[in-house]
Design a protein around this nucleic acid. Structure first.
Length: 828
DNA sequence: ATGGGGACTTAGGAGGCACCCC
DNA sequence: GGGGTGCCTCCTAAGTCCCCAT
């Protein structure tokens, strides 16, 4: 609902026909108007697009508030507005000369962000809940992304483009699509591409397979070649078994029926399956969602039309044992690529279901159809057996395209997107490209200073396009925004840097910018940052005379931006900045934050802290675990319990010898342990002990009876309970006296030791709590998997003697074999 | 330039499972 | 030893970016 109120104003053209277009399609960076106003950075926005959903900005506060910019007339008369803008811009640079150059400031470090609450629409917690994350923000010295460290090591020895022809082999089957294959050049001998070292022989595929099966690890990263370019051949031989289709639908038992308006309806298996999809989601938010329901019922009715309800139902077999399933799947789990056995990633064809689009995706709830062999294209080596589908039917096509890495693909029916079957993350192909990604990011170290000084200069460029580009680069570099491609009408309305609209950015004098928009996966990005004075001015300029729904950067798009970046360094794109800034920040945080003499747990905390800084920088969120608050409360309770014990022990010591009060650390008071708490705590301890005594008593009796003796009398229990009660009476008397005694005496040394130990325990426990609280809405995994060069972790673990298994799960270890051998002094 | 096709990486949530604490 | 519970794996959606045709 909501949503619908689009604001049709402003778009001269288009309009009507389409129902509520949500945003413009293109950034209209065209030169059209007085373009190239070489010396007039104009804030003109060409062809006014349609509207945007006004509801998009979740945070009312941030949105409306504080718009410092000179808003003024928002133009209807485009031309007039334009002229005005023009005049204005011309003047602008001079209008406030003071701040024109000065600030070289370097502010806005990356990882500091005050997170704000979350948007209604986005899944995340409601406003008040979002806690500001960790370190506060604002300039700090730790502006990681900015500090370029010196390259430590020569980067990437990437092989020169090595392209080959598809090799004659392909004649037979259908031709491979045009695409990049066009790039390939003439052939070289296969051995050119194959890694040399680490291979004993140039064996045939079969031979090497044997090797692979012997579980020998092939250390491709020790070999010469660096495979990575596009259009290059990715393999020479490839054998696999295709994909496995999900089992057919099995009907419910005949006594299970759907009711419609109180009457039982006997569905066909086809319809029942679809009804089941929905039934499975009744308890989820999806079923409450209007779009979801609309789409689902539209599709469901279609199914019902094709398969009208009838009488009589059959039901099939039972659930399969996992073992059976495994056996069935076994052959699909691996393939043989260039003679080596490799794991296949997603060999299971996606089963039919309801499309679960994220955020407010217009197609959520639509029926995702069952995929059949006729939908699937298989990519496989020429001359090896073509797999046979495990369901009736023929593959759509079989190709032998060596320039790509997928084994199978199909086009999904809801959005028309391609789906691919790739090798698993631990495979050579994926590993190589992963390593290449990080080497690329490290290469950026050599260029980043120049790039930064260039865009800093360009922030003042007279050419609007350049000034916008520089500003966009500033955001990408400093706050790690994504590139921000244009999106279509039938997708959720989310943005990135280049697709930001005016409504997503608010100025706050003197030099703050507040970002508030929905990014990838409709995750809210909220960030208030200090920026260069010039950036502040630029944004004011770019917003001038535009509507909220207009693109902030009307002269920039990702393609232009990346083209520019590539002029600095081959393969440099916006996304490399995220990898670079993430990894370099991480390295710095670790270097600065790892304690030398510390427990493993403390080091792990330092690691997690660094990890978290990166996750915050990249805005990797998760929804706080549902049980979070509850479990925090439990921890707090436990902590107070520890503190109570600790206090008691100390008081015993104090009673023995007052000199202990002076002992280092012993004098501390427990501010959150007041008499109320003590009373309550002792009550609950008492209750527990009594319960324990009762249980023990019952058990003893049980045993006695079993052995043929008579049970103890109840008076025995009573005695015990009374003794417990007495003990707690004594404790109650001790309250507030700062003195205590024990049932059993212990020598002071022992007590001292115990106090010490408990103190330690409390310390670590507190650390754990802080860690958990700070991390409740931050997803660490995403950066660990995708952005942090694993060699940083490997080296750190060696240096600080932390077992890497404490940090990398099994799958991550499998994914990063190539990083494990990094020396302990390796730096990103 | 623009727009769409295509391939590949990055992303959060669901659900399973080991583990931990009572 | 039984049930939370927190982490890991799986799943697949949603990005980025390149290429090509128009």
């Amino acid at each position: 609902m909501s949503e619908t109120e689009d604001v049709p104003q402003s778009q001269s053209t288009s309009a009507a026909s389409r129902p509520a277009p949500r945003r413009r399609k293109r950034a209209a960076a065209s030169s059209d108007e007085s373009s190239d106003d070489d010396d007039t950075p104009l804030a003109t926005s060409p062809a006014k697009p349609k509207k945007t959903k006004s509801a998009a900005v979740p945070m009312p506060g941030a949105k409306a508030a504080t718009t410092v910019s000179a808003k003024s007339v928002n133009g209807n008369g485009r031309a007039a507005a334009k002229a005005k803008a023009k005049a204005k811009v011309k003047a602008e640079p001079k209008s406030d000369p003071e701040s024109e150059d000065e600030d070289e400031d370097d502010s806005t470090p990356a990882p500091n962000r005050k997170r704000k609450p979350v948007a209604a629409s986005s899944k995340k917690a409601p406003p008040s809940k979002k806690v500001k994350r960790e370190s506060d923000d604002d300039d700090s010295d730790d502006d990681a992304p900015l500090a370029a460290t010196t390259p430590k090591k020569a980067p990437a020895k990437r092989a020169s483009k090595k392209v080959k022809a598809e090799s004659d082999a392909d004649e037979d089957e259908k031709p491979v699509k045009k695409k990049r294959a066009t790039k390939k050049a003439k052939d070289e001998s296969p051995s050119d591409v194959k890694p040399k070292k680490g291979r004993s022989k140039s064996a045939t595929a079969k031979d090497e397979l044997a090797e692979g099966e012997a579980d020998e690890v092939y250390k491709w990263w020790e070999a010469q070649q660096a495979n990575s370019g596009d259009g290059e051949e990715k393999w020479q031989t490839l054998e696999h078994n295709g994909v496995i289709f999900p089992p057919p639908y099995e009907s419910l038992p005949s006594n299970v029926k759907m009711k419609y308006k109180g009457k039982e309806v006997v569905l066909t298996p086809e319809a029942e399956e679809v009804a089941g999809f929905y039934g499975a989601m009744l308890e989820t938010d999806h079923a409450q969602d209007a779009t979801f329901n609309k789409n689902f019922f539209t599709d469901f009715l279609k199914v019902l039309a094709d398969y009208p309800p009838r009488n009589g139902v059959r039901h099939g077999a039972k659930k399969e044992i996992k073992k059976q399933k495994d056996a069935l799947e076994e052959k699909y789990t691996s393939c043989v690529l260039d003679g080596r056995k490799e794991k296949v990633g997603n060999f299971r064809v996606e089963p039919p279901g309801l499309f679960r689009g994220r955020g407010d995706h217009p197609k959520k709830g639509a029926l995702k159809l069952r995929v059949r062999p006729e939908d699937i294209t298989i990519n496989i080596g020429a001359g090896v057996p073509t797999p046979v589908p495990n369901m009736p039917g023929q593959w759509k096509q079989v190709v032998h395209d060596k320039t790509v890495t997928w084994l199978a693909n199909w086009v999904e029916n809801v959005n028309g997107n391609y789906k691919y079957v790739f090798l698993a993350a631990g495979s050579l192909l994926k590993g190589q490209s992963d390593m290449a990604k990080f080497e690329k990011a490290r290469e950026l170290k050599k260029h980043v200073d120049r790039i930064r000084s260039d865009y800093t200069a360009d922030l003042k460029s007279k050419v609007m396009a350049d000034r916008q580009r520089a500003t966009a680069m500033y955001f990408i570099d400093r706050v790690a925004l994504r590139a921000g491609n244009e999106k279509g009408e039938d997708e959720a309305d989310t943005v990135g840097c280049c697709s930001l609209r005016c409504e997503h950015v608010t100025l706050e004098a003197p030099n703050f910018i507040i970002f508030d928009f929905l990014g990838k996966d409709s995750i809210r990005y909220y960030n208030r940052v200090t920026v260069d004075q010039q950036v502040f001015k630029n944004i004011r300029l770019f917003k001038d005379n535009k509507d909220d729904s207009d693109n902030l950067f009307d002269r920039v798009n990702t393609s232009l931006l990346n083209k520019h970046l590539a002029s600095y360094m081959k393969g440099l794109t916006a996304k490399v900045f995220r990898t670079y800034n993430a990894s370099i920040t991480f390295q710095q945080q670790l270097d600065e934050g790892t304690p030398e003499m510390a427990t493993v747990q403390e080091k792990l905390n330092a690691y997690n802290h660094a990890n978290r800084m990166v996750a915050i920088l990249c805005n990797h969120q998760r929804s706080a675990p549902k049980t979070h608050e509850q479990s925090m409360e439990k921890m707090r309770e436990r902590l107070r319990g520890f503190k109570y014990d600790w206090m008691k022990l100390r008081h015993v010591l104090f009673a023995m010898d007052p000199k202990y009060k002076k002992k280092k650390g012993f004098a501390e008071d427990e501010s959150d342990i007041d008499d109320d708490f003590v009373a309550q705590h002792e009550d609950s301890l008492k209750a527990k002990e009594i319960e324990k005594a009762e249980k023990k008593f019952a058990k003893e009796n049980e045993k006695l009876v079993e052995e043929g003796s008579t049970a103890q009398k109840d008076s025995v229990l009573k005695e015990r309970v009374d003794s417990i009660k007495d003990e707690f009476k004594r404790l109650a008397k001790e309250r507030g006296t700062k003195k205590a005694s024990l049932k059993r005496d212990r020598p002071p040394e022992k007590l001292e030791e115990a106090v010490q130990k408990l103190g330690e325990k409390i310390k670590t426990f507190k650390l754990q709590m802080d860690d958990r609280e700070a991390g409740k809405e931050v997803a660490l995994g995403t950066s660990k998997i995708n952005y942090l060069d694993p060699r940083i972790t490997a080296a750190w673990c060696k240096t600080h003697e932390v077992p890497i298994e404490k940090i990398f799960s099994k799958t991550l270890l499998t994914k990063f074999p190539w990083a494990m051998e990094a020396d302990d002094d390796w730096k990103f």
